[in-house]
Simulated scan of single mutants.
Amino acid sequence: MDQLTSGGYKIPQSVLVVIHTPALEVLLIQRADTPPTWPDYWQSVTGSKDHVDESYAETAWREVQEETGIDARLWPQGLRDWGLENVYEIYPWWRKRYAPEVTHNTEHLFSLCVPAGTPVRLSPREHRAYRWLPWREAAQVCASPSNAEACLLLPRFAESVGGLGQKS
């Protein structure tokens, strides 16, 4: 669960973690707190820093555990910092979580390679369902444009770290 700053607001710095298998099947999770007009909101693991001094890597480890039950520390070589960030406008229905003057979030990208068949345990407060999809299909299903783009970039990053994945 994302923690709030001392002022009661979320920090507008977050991570996006594309969890995938060596065959580039991507884990997508369905949000539970979307507005009625957007009931089919699928995404990768995302989450804000708990405190301003928390590193993006620490945020990624924590959010993967909280949202999927996957202990990313079991595959320490599998977590990859892509060195990329997206800055995007926060959707209006989630803006109340941030200080009144905050309209944009900075999102740092990671991927995590896990073995096929890795068990997933969702936090029911945050997510309703999960599914594994080939990377191209995952990109088509993602509600967030930055998440879809990350899925499309996955083969390049998986290949650049020693061929963890295979192109399809």
Results as ranks from 00 to 15, higher is better:
Leu4Ile: 07
Leu164Cys: 12
Thr106Met: 13
Leu154Gly: 02
Val17Glu: 07
Arg131His: 13
His51Trp: 14
Ile70Ala: 09
Tyr130Lys: 03
Glu137Tyr: 02
Glu85Leu: 03
Gln166Ser: 14
Glu54Cys: 09
Asp81Phe: 13
Val45Gly: 00
Leu74Thr: 12
Ala158Asp: 05
Gly8Tyr: 03
Tyr98Phe: 15
Tyr41Ala: 11
Leu79Glu: 04
Glu58Tyr: 00
Gly83Glu: 08
Tyr91Glu: 15
Val64Leu: 07
Phe110Ala: 06
Asn86Glu: 11
Gln3Arg: 12
Cys151Tyr: 07
Gln77Thr: 13
Ala72Asp: 02
Leu112Asp: 03
Trp38Tyr: 08
Val52Asp: 07
Asp33Val: 01
Leu28His: 10
Leu84Val: 13
Val87Pro: 00
Ala116Pro: 14
Leu74Ala: 15
Leu27His: 09
Thr21Glu: 08
Asp53Thr: 11
Ser55Cys: 05
Tyr56Leu: 05
Gly162Cys: 02
Thr5Met: 06
Pro134Gly: 12
Gly47Phe: 09
Gly162Met: 07
Gly117Glu: 11
Lys96Tyr: 08
Tyr41Phe: 15
Ala99Ile: 04
Ile90Val: 10
Thr106Pro: 03
Leu24Asn: 14
Gln3Pro: 00
Ser144Thr: 04
Leu84Arg: 14
Gln43Ser: 14
Leu153Lys: 13
Asp50Ile: 02
Tyr9Arg: 08
Ser123Phe: 08
Arg156Asp: 12
Thr21Gln: 04
Gln166Asn: 05
Tyr91Asn: 14
Leu84Ser: 06
His104Asn: 08
Leu16Cys: 12
Asn147Ile: 03
Val141Gln: 15
Val87Tyr: 01
Phe157Val: 07
His104Pro: 04
Leu27Gln: 10
Gln43Pro: 00
Ala60Pro: 01
Ser44Tyr: 01
Val161Thr: 09
Met1Val: 06
Cys142Pro: 01
Pro124Glu: 14
Trp82His: 14
Glu54Arg: 07
Glu101Val: 01
Ser6Cys: 02
Ala150Tyr: 01
Met1Asp: 10
Asn86Trp: 15
Trp93Tyr: 15
Pro155Asp: 04
Ile90Lys: 10
Trp42Leu: 06
Lys10Asp: 04
Glu89Ile: 09
Leu16Lys: 05
Ser144Ala: 10
Glu107Phe: 01
Asp40Pro: 00
Gly47Pro: 04
Ala57Gln: 04
Ser123Trp: 09
Leu28Lys: 06
Val17Arg: 07
Asn86Gln: 09
Ser14Pro: 00
Arg31Leu: 10
Arg131Tyr: 02
Arg80Asn: 09
Leu152Glu: 14
Ala99Lys: 10
Val18Asp: 01
Pro12Phe: 06
Ser48Cys: 15
Glu66Met: 12
Gly117His: 09
Gln30Phe: 01
Ala72Ser: 15
Ala116Tyr: 08
Ser168Leu: 09
Gly78Ile: 00
Ser48Pro: 02
Ala23Asn: 09
Ser44Arg: 00
Arg80Thr: 13
Arg156Trp: 11
Arg31Ser: 11
Ala139Tyr: 11
His20Glu: 05
Glu159Asn: 09
Leu16Ala: 12
Glu126Lys: 11
Lys49Arg: 13
Val114Ala: 04
His127Val: 03
Ser146Cys: 03
Met1Lys: 12
Ser6Leu: 05
Thr68Pro: 07
Val102Ile: 15
Gln3Asp: 11
Asp81Ile: 00
Ser123His: 13
Ile11Lys: 04
Ala72Trp: 04
Leu154Ile: 02
Pro22Gln: 08
Pro115Lys: 13
Leu154Gln: 03
His51Ile: 02
Ile90Trp: 13
Pro35Asn: 05
Glu25Trp: 07
